[in-house]
């Protein structure tokens, strides 16, 4: 059991992931993951979900298969991934080398009043990914585990799953733009696609 005061801090974790993204495209799951990635630095190569709960990993799969030479990183929370748990199996069938799914796992539904999620009640997403054909699945409890995982970014030997245990404290919200059309257009423009 990891002591609470040793748990990694979400904003520090996400900042380091973003600092090591290289040319990666980043998709975020709704709630704190979206705020964390925006806080680490906005980019046209970020696509933030503000809704569509459970859809972050599959959005990442669609992008990863469409752009097989471009690394794709999905950053989401345990609650968001639990709603799309089947997508772990769907990714395990396709096995894209350029995809990493990163779970910021605080064991709570943070956006709705800190109700305990499944991952703080015995459910282990990292093992589910491991059993679903992911090439690498990391359970990250401490700084050393995390530093080891960072060397796998940007993803090129995937699919990679990183279940990062973080402290449950929620930093102040940092809100990126909400406009889905703008988020889509800027992301695609950055890849050389003009809006219709």
């Amino acid at each position: 059991m990891v002591k609470a005061n040793n748990l990694l801090k979400r904003r520090e974790v996400v900042k380091k992931i973003i600092d090591n993204r290289g040319e990666s495209k980043v998709i975020t799951g709704l709630g704190s993951a979206t705020y964390d990635v925006f806080d680490a630095g906005d980019s046209d190569s970020n696509f933030y979900l503000w809704g569509a709960m459970g859809g972050a990993a599959m959005t990442g799969l669609g992008l990863a298969l469409a752009k097989p030479d471009t690394p794709t990183i999905v950053i989401t929370g345990d609650g968001e991934q639990l709603m799309g748990m089947g997508s772990i199996a769907s990714i395990g069938v396709q096995k894209p080398k350029n995809l990493a799914i990163i779970i910021l796992d605080n064991g709570y539904f943070g956006e709705t009043g800190m109700q305990k999620s499944h991952t703080s009640q015995g459910v282990d997403l990292h093992s589910i990914a491991k059993a679903s054909n992911f090439k690498h699945s990391f359970l990250i409890n401490c700084q050393d585990d995390f530093d080891n995982f960072i060397s796998f970014l940007p993803p090129s030997d995937g699919p990679i799953f990183a279940n990062i245990k973080i402290e449950s404290k929620n930093p102040p919200r940092r809100l990126p733009i909400l406009d889905g059309v703008e988020l889509k257009n800027r992301f695609r423009r950055n890849l050389g696609f003009d809006p219709l």
Binding site: A52, G54, M58, T59, L61, G62, S90, R188
Partner: peptide, 26 residues
């Protein structure tokens, strides 16, 4: 054309959106 098997249909909505972000049609 590549078939992509899903566990539930809603995965296909997110997948299609992601593929379009990357310039491909689903």
């Amino acid at each position: 054309i590549q078939p992509i098997v899903l566990t539930t249909e809603e995965e296909g909505i997110a997948f299609s959106s992601g593929s379009w972000l990357g310039g491909e049609k689903s």
